[in-house]
Nucleic acid binder design. Structure first.
Length: 777
RNA sequence: UGGGGCGUCGGCAAGCGGCAAGCCAACGGUUUUUGGUACCGUCAUUCGCAGGUUCGAAUCCUGCCGCCCCAACCA
């Protein structure tokens, strides 16, 4: 019985889905998809997308498709589809029957292309690759239409058929959408839909020699599969316009919507397929599944459990801001999942011989150590042989211990975990002066605890030198030594490779119990970290363990006090007063081409007395300016009209466009008139405006609904304030204790109780008095 | 003729006109036969900057600044 899942953190995609569900947008369905191209291995960045897409479907009772976006046979291969399926399944997600391939839709897509041609919305272009690029223009200049843009429908149909029939060579000809060569969005400049590729496809074989491009294919795949929310990464934002255009211009079987989130970046690692490939090809790592790689395969070999990856993806959140997540977060997720469920054993990574001089020569005493951590209700134990010679960790002994040392040193006594206290009497060194052996005595009475209650200087893990088993331990650390290995395009990211990312301890000694472990078993080497038994690399007599991650270690060798960095005051950028005239604003340009607006600009400033900024805004966009003119025609004060138009009404518009509002300028005039006559307060006007937007009802009617106008009566407001105070005992107490900021809370309560009708200024004064009184009581 | 996005703590990230959530990191403390775990506590008078609107602005309006994406017959 699992405890109820804590509700997952909210994010903007969930908000959108919930809103769609509320509105019944896609018949109340939720269908997402994870659409990898089978041209490489999955990494933790993909895991974020997988968790998001499958998670969303799971949570909203929908479905998530695993769809291979195999539209480019020159880069793709079956090898990858198997590894991707394997990785997704290993992560713990089930696509059920929803396994799809874009290539299965080639015939349908061809049909949609023909439809587009017939509608005159696509054409066959015979320009060379170079000409197409040339004529696309640049980001600052419009493109120019292809000379083939106006081919007849018949000719296009014929050519397209011939394309499919294989009558053209690669690169000779393409099918393009006929959209707009001058569009500011480069992707809308007649995007390519099909290209010729005489290549064998891993699924369709040689059935096709034309293949659809991403922009054309992806939205159709979504539409065909009835995907509702097509969630992809930020770099596709510009593609959304094409996506919507295509869905809108083809008889699409459904109307999917695309949403974009920020891809995952992790510090101390690289994520791009290209760079990962480089590491593999240059043998800088052992392969795609090298435990230092951020690939799913690498993390699996490393021993990271899938639930840790899922948890990680949950806690990093989903948003639209480019961000760089700290790997410490991943390590936390791993420890959090592993710690409560992982058996504890002992293994000495760098053995230091310890001879217990007062212990019988050939005696083997069996200690019993619990395998499971305290939180698990299982006291299963494993036998740990204790003998005259044992190994302890080299790092656990210091000839001259630093301050706060809680380990072993000459003359000190420590506890051996699950065994006796031992005391260091003598240090044996070799010719080089290195410590090679410790001569100690044990206290037969002090096993675990000492009868006299004395405390040891720490607890060490240990292994019998004669009964232990030799194992190989591979200690992995971050692959790169700088936070952003690919942060500087000038510097090869490989120069930042961490030389210590892998340390192999061939001579690690472990307790014999480890021989019982099954391949893939995860254990905690106490005081060291979590390790996994690497089944692939172990053989009968040779156990190999990969370190998944270290334990958190709060022991600092040098308690370096954090440099008392004076909390760097945010440097305020020097105010550079850019002369307004320095650049010609968009609005200036509009006015240049529209003398009437230019005249208004002057009139607003000179006759109406509006500030330059306000006049600029209200004369720089024709529809907006016309709206303002309508308000002016009512005879209301210009300043009032300007203020409410700009600051309030515009907030409800769509990027400054007010045409979508459910009421006209006349209704807005009515509202402003009420305000001008002081029949309503600013606050009430805002309340009414909001209601107008929602319901489209007239201001007068809404005012009536509110039941009267401004409350400006002292005693009435005092009564309300009292009731607010009475209903907020906690807050009153806190306010008394000096929490001034609660004033806003109280004020908000007053306004809420009166639906905004209380006169704000008066309310504020009275509230202040009431609260002051509260404090003096 | 440029367009599309994004700026909230050291790192993630909620927040949608009324008290600046949470997590990681860091730092203290309690418990402890792991310098682990668990538990408690500290950590944003301020939301890129500057104006404006409002009784009240991270949130609405305006301007500016800074990052990211777009000119593959890749996805």
């Amino acid at each position: 019985m699992k405890p109820p899942e804590k509700s997952k953190p909210s994010n903007f995609v969930r908000d959108i889905i919930e809103e769609d569900l509320r509105l019944g947008t896609h018949d109340g369905r939720v269908a997402t998809r994870f659409p990898p191209e089978p041209n490489g291995y999955l990494h933790i960045g993909h895991a974020k997308s997988i968790c998001l897409n499958f998670g969303l479907a799971q949570e909203y009772g929908g479905q998530c498709h695993l769809r291979f976006d195999d539209t480019n046979p020159v880069k793709e291969d079956v090898e990858y589809v198997e590894s991707i399926k394997n990785d997704v399944a290993w992560l713990g997600f089930d696509w059920g029957e929803h396994l799809y391939f874009a290539s299965d839709y080639f015939e349908k897509m061809y049909g949609f292309a023909v439809e587009l041609i017939k509608k005159g919305l696509a054409y066959v272009d015979s320009q060379s690759v170079e000409d197409i690029q040339e004529n696309r223009g640049t980001v600052k200049t419009p493109g120019v239409p292809s000379p083939y843009r106006d081919r007849s429908v018949e000719e296009n149909l014929d050519l397209f058929e011939k394309m499919r029939a294989g009558e053209f060579k690669d690169g000779e000809i393409v099918l393009r959408a006929k959209i707009d060569m001058g569009n500011a969005n480069m992707l809308m400049r007649d995007p390519l839909l099909y290209r010729v590729r005489h290549v064998h496809h891993h699924r369709t074989g040689d059935a096709w020699c034309i293949y659809p491009m991403y922009d054309f294919a992806h939205c159709l795949e979504d539409a065909i599969e009835q995907i509702t929310h097509s969630v992809c990464t930020l770099e596709f934002e510009n593609n959304r316009e094409v996506y919507d255009w295509l869905i809108g211009n083809v008889s699409a079987p459904s109307q999917p919507k695309q949403y974009e989130f920020a891809r995952l970046n992790l510090n101390y690692t690289v994520m791009s397929k290209r760079k990962l490939l480089q590491l593999v090809e240059e043998n800088l790592v052992s392969g795609w599944d090298d435990p230092r790689m951020p690939t799913i395969a690498g993390m699996r070999k490393r021993g990271i459990p899938p639930e840790a990856i899922r948890f990680f993806c949950e806690i990093i959140g989903v948003a639209k801001a480019n961000s760089l997540v700290d790997v410490a977060m991943l390590e936390y997720a791993i420890r959090d999942k592993l710690d409560p469920v992982t058996p504890r054993v002992m293994c000495v990574l760098r053995p230091l011989k310890v001879t217990i001089t007062n212990f019988p020569e050939d005696k083997v005493e069996i200690m019993n150590g619990p395998l499971w951590p305290e939180n698990i209700d299982n006291d299963e134990k494993r036998p740990i042989p204790f003998t005259k010679t044992i190994f302890i960790e080299q790092g656990d002994f210091a000839e001259t211990p630093p301050k706060k040392w809680k380990r072993f040193a000459p003359g000190l006594e420590v506890r051996l975990r699950h065994a006796y206290f031992i005391k260091c009497n003598e240090v044996v060194k070799n010719d080089a002066g290195e410590v090679v052996e410790l001569l100690c005595t044990y206290d037969p009475q002090a096993r675990g605890t000492a009868p006299d209650g004395r405390k040891p200087n720490g607890t060490l893990h240990w292994v019998s030198a004669t009964e232990g088993v030799n194992v190989q331990a591979r200690l992995y650390d971050r692959l790169f030594s700088v936070a952003q290995p690919d942060g500087d395009a000038e510097v090869d990211f490989k120069t930042h490779l961490n030389p210590d990312s892998l340390t192999v301890r061939e001579c690690a000694m472990a307790e014999p119990y480890l021989k019982e472990l099954k391949s893939g078993a995860r254990v905690q080497f106490e005081r060291q970290g979590f390790f996994v038994l690497d089944g692939d690399d172990s053989s009968d007599g040779n156990l190999v363990f990969n370190r998944i991650t270290t334990l958190r270690d709060s022991w600092k060798k040098e308690p370096v006090k954090a440099a008392p960095k004076p909390k760097a005051k945010k440097q305020k950028p020097a105010l550079v007063s850019v002369p307004q005239e320095a650049k010609v604003s968009q609005r200036d340009q509009v006015r240049e081409g529209n003398p009437a607006l230019a005249a208004r600009f002057d009139r607003y400033q000179n006759d109406l007395g509006l500030s330059k900024n306000v006049a600029d805004q209200l004369s720089g966009d024709e529809p907006l300016s016309n709206y303002f003119e309508t308000l002016l025609a009512s005879g209301l004060p210009a300043a009032l009209c300007a203020k409410w138009l700009r600051n309030e009404l515009l907030a409800y518009g769509d990027e400054g466009d007010l045409s979508g509002l459910s009421f006209g300028a006349d209704a807005f005039v009515e509202l402003l008139t009420l305000l001008n006559k002081k029949e309503i307060s600013n606050r009430m006007a805002k309340e009414i405006l909001e209601a107008m937007v929602k319901t489209g009802k007239a201001p007068g009617a809404l005012l009536k609904d509110m039941g009267g106008g401004v409350i400006a009566d002292d005693s009435a407001i005092e009564g309300i304030i009292q009731s607010v105070l009475d209903g907020a005992v906690d807050e009153c107490e806190r306010y008394k204790n000096g929490e001034d900021k609660l004033f806003g809370f109280f004020m908000g309560q007053v306004m809420a109780q009166t639906k905004g009708k209380a006169d704000p200024k008066l309310s504020r004064d009275l509230l202040q008095k009431a609260l002051a009184k509260l404090r003096t009581e």
